[in-house]
């Protein structure tokens, strides 16, 4: 564990708490993509299969995995049931097959071992890299967003961004590289570039998140 990964994980935790806070206080999931949230459930379920196979990394690792699975399922429940009337499926129209199918094919091609758990692990890494697309698509379509929704997206972007210095650190301290995670992680972080530009130049200056026309 190093400071980059720790703060990355904390940013990831923060993003979930921000999202829960937004939904609970506004009693609305307006502007939140159910599809992105469902993809995260798929990501966690397929990546954390090792939980059920007796692989033990650390108490921290297990606790976080259980939290990510539990909280992502809870968020789906909130959107689908508790606040379903505030969810607008007509805005959330990104076709998830375009993300699921290529991620699965990439998982079949690029993996560390051709076994179910390893292919699923790779699939989850590729899927996570692009899972934010439906959420960004809603932003794109509406052209604006509540500040709290943008804080959620920013925390998610910071999370994966911080993993990059973590990998550089691990390369020098342990001599190990995880090429699949690194390539997907760089792509994932890159997808936030446009968003971050608007976020840092507008939202953090106290202005509304509005995309240029």
């Amino acid at each position: 564990m190093n400071i980059f990964r720790l703060f990355g994980d904390l940013a990831h935790l923060a993003s979930i708490f921000i999202l829960l806070h937004k939904v609970q206080t506004s009693r609305s999931c307006r502007g939140i993509s159910f599809k992105t949230q469902a993809l995260y459930v798929a990501v966690f379920m397929t990546r954390y299969l090792d939980l059920f196979l007796g692989t033990w990394v650390s108490f921290y690792n297990t606790l976080m995995k259980l939290f990510f699975i539990g909280s992502s399922c809870y968020i789906l429940y909130l959107i689908r049931f508790q606040f379903r009337t505030t969810y607008d499926p007509n805005l959330d129209t990104f076709r998830v097959e375009y993300l699921l199918v290529p991620s699965f094919i990439l998982g079949l091609i690029f993996n560390y071992e051709f076994t179910l758990t390893e292919v699923m692990w790779s699939f989850s890494i590729f899927l996570e890299a692009v899972a934010i697309f439906p959420q960004l698509f809603i932003l794109q379509r509406t052209g604006e967003a509540e500040a709290i929704t943008t804080h959620y997206i920013a925390a998610l972007g910071i999370y994966r961004g911080l993993y990059i210095p973590n990998w550089i650190y691990r390369y020098y301290s342990e001599g190990s590289v995880d090429p699949i995670a690194v390539v997907a992680g760089i792509v994932q972080t890159g997808l936030y570039a446009d968003f971050f530009y608007v976020y840092f130049t507008k939202v953090l200056q106290g202005q509304r998140f509005e995309l240029p026309a």
Binding site: R5, Y112, E113, Y163, V177, D178, A181
Partner: peptide, 10 residues
Amino acid sequence: PYPYRPHDEL
């Protein structure tokens, strides 16, 4: 060790 390491990250 390169290239494989057990998945110890989240």
